[in-house]
Design a protein around this nucleic acid. Structure first.
Lengths: 216, 216, 216, 216
DNA sequence: AACTAATCGAGACGGTACGTCTCGTCTTTTT
DNA sequence: AAAAAGACGAGACGTACCGTCTCGATTAGTT
């Protein structure tokens, strides 16, 4: 992780120059989080973060490559451990719980602007116009989240709860895709019922025999 | 329209004043389309469109509320009829074909920047920071596309190819969601195979009996 | 006066076509006068005049070459006869009265924005960036006003109240110059006392013997 | 200030942050001067200055409140020391020389567009539509110039070359007014002869006894 | 009466400058 | 060396008027 100098004896015979301030980093992340809470994602500019954190813009650019990267870090700090994943052995239940928490956690507020959902939507939006950011997003947010589900799925496969040949990548997209669409468009509620139905449908689809074609 | 034919009335009773120039409109849309082809979505600025089209910026703002709105219109012109929907009576085949065309049509190019997919991604991105635009997007792009699938689904229901109680809204999200995720993140190919698998899984899920829970 | 056809017999052989509307003209001038009264000179735009008068911009450009020309005409209508010039035979008194009326008539209001003075200042300002307008200004406003003083001066010369060899052009500048400076800069009051002192000084200067040089 | 000398203090204690770039400032002023030389005052836009100087528009607005303010500064740099004022003890001669230089220095070129006169005229014009600018004009240009004449006049008073009770403000307007009128209207030449006559007339007026009234 | 020709309201249009915004970089002083 | 401070070039934003240009609807004269 970027800032944390662990130090040997904490003393560590430093060269000349002011050492990197940890307060600086936390101030930035706190300021970013505040701005995300208070206003819209688009208002969280580098300029605004710097001002709020009492930090020079240069310092931002020194430690973070982009606004979105700061947001991602601030976001992770805020919600990192929120969704506890439990592998109870009952895959269906575990998965359902996870997806319900994911969906409801991303639910947009009435004005469609605040909250984790808005932040994620903003990040996805930013990433569309910035290839490097998209990479960052994949690495830092997207894949870690999916990795947890992958573990669940592999466990389920091992226990025979899912067919051995299930394409995990496909499963993940089948599960997350519908949630993303509702997050990004907001045409229908992103609630527990929806999450349950998605999970149920996907699981039924995975378990139903290959001869899915009804007629003929 | 039959031969009503008294002339001015067929033109829907225009008020006084110079009428909107059609060349201007087409020039704008053509310029926008060109810019979208040549560069990245972010580079398609109002300024660039105006310059390319040989049009005053005011004219843009007069007829379109935002850059994204122009892009949407230019985009529609370009791909409006591309995906022909056929209701052959074989729902599975029709749906599969539609989703394959949708997916492959949105496929990102190697550099991840060009093409219809990039445009759609850019629009979705823009819409995240602009409530009105999101509304426009829903009305002008999102819902019309879905309406075609709704028709297919309702036909299938009528013919008994799908359960009568299937939630159409859910079905649509199950189908489009996975495609959107791959479009926006690009973590896995957006190809025909993927589309086929998504469709197959969703249909199996819809047709499998409610008692989907395998164990317990 | 421009439009007013007085004539049954003057007829003047007009061709076919709709004649120029008098209401239109008066509406424009009235609107302009209103705008001048209500706001600052700079706010009296072609657009604003057209809107207020309920007239098409084209019509403005058809009959007047520039905004300033309209203002001049509207201004003249408003104050044309305000300053009555009287040639009583007592040049000093006549001149003093004229200059007092001129000065006080141009006095700026407290906020320095309204009134005849502001209009004149605005016209002079406009004329600095428009050669043709400057010509118009000279012809339509500047010289007519001066012509009246010229008449007074010539009368005074004839009556021996002024030296025969006085340079009229110079006299006029000596008289009007100080007033213009105070009008345009507003560094000191443009009141009757000032006008009186200017007139007195100029007249003394004209009448004092050529050997003005006090010392060697 | 004596030799306090601890260094940074002599530089008037600047705070942190990048200091204002001197090259930037000089580039702006040089560019402005060039534009004034090459074209008409109206063509000297903020945009043009920025482009010519290779400077961002924002930088212009940061340091100068208006186009006219830049012009004034560029103008001062160009003509600051041009008119050397000499207090030789002979007031009449000093004044005459000063006013001749002033007048001829402002003389319009044949096309009525270039030169110091045009710049001054443009500034006066601008100031008519901008109260703050007028104030700036007074402070930065108008009053400093007049102050020099005030000094002359006061000297003359002390030496008995002018009546002790002469109203300096009035004298200044009597002297400068005629020049301004010719500058702004251009109805008659702004030459040495004119300046001489103005000075002669004003001085005669000031020295002639109060009973200027010839008749009665 | 039909045709012709001008006026006029309405408003679209290309153009240009405005003043503001945020970006990412650069240059100081301070710690 | 690392900060804070903030100047700077770049360039898009959305707005305001300009002066020109269609339109359709009058409103006369001329045929």
């Amino acid at each position: 992780m970027s800032a944390g100098d662990e130090g040997p004896c904490t003393k560590e015979r430093r060269g000349p120059g002011r050492p990197r301030s940890v307060e600086c980093q936390t101030a930035v992340l706190r300021a970013t989080a505040e701005l995300l809470d208070e206003g819209r994602y688009v208002e969280v500019t580098m300029e605004a973060i710097a001002k709020r954190a009492g930090v020079a813009k240069q310092t931002l650019y020194k430690w973070w490559p982009s606004r979105a990267r700061i947001v991602m870090e601030a976001y992770r700090e805020k919600v990192g451990g929120t969704i506890r994943i439990a592998d109870t052995g009952d895959f269906d239940q575990d998965l359902e719980r996870l997806m319900i928490e994911t969906a409801t956690g991303l639910r947009r507020s009435s004005d469609g602007l605040r909250g984790l959902g808005a932040v994620l939507a903003g990040l996805i939006a930013d990433a569309q116009n910035d290839v490097e950011l998209l990479e960052e997003f994949k690495t830092s947010y997207f894949e870690p989240r999916r990795a947890r589900v992958v573990a669940l799925v592999e466990g389920a496969k091992a226990r025979g709860e899912l067919p051995k040949d299930a394409d995990v990548e496909l499963v993940l997209d089948l599960l997350y895709g519908p949630i993303w669409v509702r997050l990004l468009v907001g045409h229908a509620p992103l609630d527990a019922k929806f999450a349950r139905e998605v999970v149920a449908n996907v699981l039924r689809g995975l378990r139903a025999g290959a001869p899915a074609r009804r007629s003929k």
